[in-house]
Design a binder for these strands. Structure first.
Lengths: 145, 145
DNA sequence: ATGGCTGCAAAGGATTTGCACAATG
DNA sequence: CATTGTGCAAATCCTTTGCAGCCAT
């Protein structure tokens, strides 16, 4: 798990995981990916899915998203961009907003940290949930924030 | 744990947890808080610490930070502000930068989400770690990203 | 007195890991 | 063929919870 990987092999499992992840329109958890990949490789194990998501993200092929809660989500698009999560159904979407390039330099000057990157995430209620939520459901809002 | 709390009591445990959390200059994990609180209340349990951090955060007295990794961190200052985390030592500090008020409206218009809030986090190497890091340690960088 | 809180310990859920075997380059 | 990767299951880690007694209001 440390980054001394030289001979990365493209196994069938790795291949399928990557392909399937890229088909998602939202950003699935390891479990969700497992479910889909399974349909093509019935004998694959959850552990393998985790291991490969890890490798692929180290290779920069995909992104690991670290939202609230314990569940990690993955993004087949390795380019820098921002996300928004629905507090009710937990769906994660992309945010159409340019990447803030300049702020990192500013923050470096102010904090003396050597900046590697940043993450900007919005949370709220997705269109569907806002619509469905006439009033019940409100109580559960706090859960992940 | 659902938000129908009416009669919140200010117990000694809750009091001390809040006091100690507010003394931290960085943003500690539940475990760290437990260690400190313990010195004043030797019989307190980790479970109680977790429960109270949850309650205090629901009350808006403190903030729960959801950084990468599984460990949650807590912030004694409930005001909106941004954070930066050191990828090596895992320290979390505040970022001196005004809160971006306006972007939420913009994102609402673009995504149709009803926006509740946003979170902006930087990560990199804290001053001390950048200094100490002549070259070893580099391998571990990927760990939380 | 009466809910809310606590300590304790056990349960939980997501992720990681050890191992023996299988597959890749 | 030497290694890297896999499946399986057990282990780990942080966090949550059930319960019986305790304590603030």
């Amino acid at each position: 798990m440390t980054s001394d990987r030289h001979n990365i092999r493209m196994t069938r499992q790795r291949q399928v995981i990557l392909e399937e992840l890229r088909k998602f329109m939202h950003h699935p958890s390891a479990e969700e990916i497992y479910e889909v990949v399974r349909r093509r490789l019935p004998r694959i194990s959850l552990g393998t899915v985790y291991r490969n998501l890890e490798v692929l993200s180290e290779l920069g092929e995909i992104r690991k998203l670290e939202f609230g809660g314990t569940i990690k989500r993955f993004d087949g698009d390795p380019e820098d961009h921002y996300h928004i999560r629905c507090n009710l159904c937990d769906r994660v979407d992309n945010v159409p907003m340019p990447h803030l390039e300049d702020i990192e330099t500013r923050i470096h000057l102010e904090t003396d940290y050597r900046i590697i990157g940043h993450r900007l995430e919005f949370f709220g209620l997705c269109p569907e949930c806002s619509r469905n939520m006439i009033s019940p459901g409100l109580k559960k809002l706090n859960k992940n924030n």
